[in-house]
């Protein structure tokens, strides 16, 4: 079993703690001039997304996590699994619902996602920051109403519910920030 020592700690390093994979968000070296050195880290649980503080003595070792982040294309969902593919090798990976829970509403076929693999299985998927999606449902547009800030609910092709300006029509392509779920603009090519 591969181990990593605190001296190799840096943000982005992945390791196993109490059976769960974590990534280091922040690492601070703490040491009195004449005393014990420590690493105080903020780490994110890659399964739950929760960020916690932990303290290690310098020289302590943790179990390295076989975690990789791979660019993949989303393919389809079969009711049980969500299928992704590595575009260079065409290797396919099936993700369980827990892995895509937070991003289900942003999964669009052929779009690129960063899939985190732990021991070869998908642990989570991160959508691109900006994504273009078609409006599949919304109230008709109100011609000429450009009132600042006025919005209406809309559903996009992936199932996400968003708010769009009143002038946006069903069937249009819009650009959305997936981190906030906010409408940004009409897509340029529509």
């Amino acid at each position: 079993m591969a181990t990593v020592s605190t001296s190799e700690f840096k943000s982005g390093l992945k390791f196993i703690l109490d059976g769960d994979p974590y990534t280091i968000v922040e690492n601070e070296f703490v040491k009195p001039g004449k005393g014990q050195a420590f690493s105080r880290v903020k780490i994110r649980n890659l399964k739950t997304g929760r960020v916690v503080d932990k303290t290690f003595k310098s020289g302590e070792k943790v179990e390295a996590a076989d975690v990789m982040e791979v660019d993949m294309e989303y393919l389809y969902e079969d009711g049980e699994f969500w299928h992704f593919m590595e575009p260079t090798s065409f290797e396919q990976h099936a993700a369980e619902e827990t892995a895509v829970m937070d991003v289900k509403h942003w999964l669009k076929p052929q779009e690129k996602y960063i899939v985190t693999l732990w021991n070869g299985s998908p642990l989570s998927a991160t959508p691109p920051n900006f994504i273009e999606l078609q409006i599949t449902e919304c109230d008709p547009g109100v011609a000429g109403n450009t009132a600042q800030g006025a919005t209406k609910p809309a559903t996009v092709e992936t199932g996400a519910q968003i708010k769009v300006p009143l002038f946006v029509e069903e069937g249009e392509m819009v650009k959305i920030d997936t981190r906030t779920g906010e409408y940004l603009s009409r897509a340029k090519d529509s």
Partner: peptide, 17 residues
């Protein structure tokens, strides 16, 4: 202190922590 493993710590290092 969150998750500090005290195994192997002596009086000085405990006080330092």
């Amino acid at each position: 202190i969150d998750h500090l493993d005290t195994e192997g710590m002596n009086n000085q290092s405990l006080l330092d922590a």
